[in-house]
Amino acid sequence: MNNQLKIEMAALAENVSLARVVATAFIAPLDPSVGEISDIKTAVSEAVTNAIIHGYGGNTGTVALDLFNNGREITIVISDEGVGIEDIASAREPLFTTKPDMERSGLGFTVMESFMDSVHVISTPGGGTRVTMHKKLGEHSKNE
């Protein structure tokens, strides 16, 4: 079964939990394990939070969440039209943050990379950022 879902949300902190709920509901028919659900929820939360706080930095804007599955292969795309990232390689380094004063620790990208199978980032300064993540769900039953 292949499926697809796209939602767009206002760049509000409240909406991150909504994005997690939507991603969890989208993968639910595939009977993911508890660990897989938690990994995907966390990765979505990281990328959507980044779009809101870094991409738009408190300004209004729209964040898109695109979900696809090809069998048990999940693809998640989170995009914004915010400020973009100057140096993607540095941004992806563990502990790199441009907002240490806001109690950020620079772990978001590292979490996405370790909780998902792959993470691809495209960004244009002034144009926005698009994060594409893949994860292949295991072939186990739900209660494993």
Binding site: R20, S38, K41, T42, S45, E46, T49, M102, E103, R104, S105, L107, G108, V111
Partner: peptide, 13 residues
């Protein structure tokens, strides 16, 4: 029931 890196930042603070 859930925590992400924002929670980690809050805990460090």
């Amino acid at each position: 029931s859930f925590m992400d890196s924002s929670g980690i930042g809050m805990i460090i603070g």
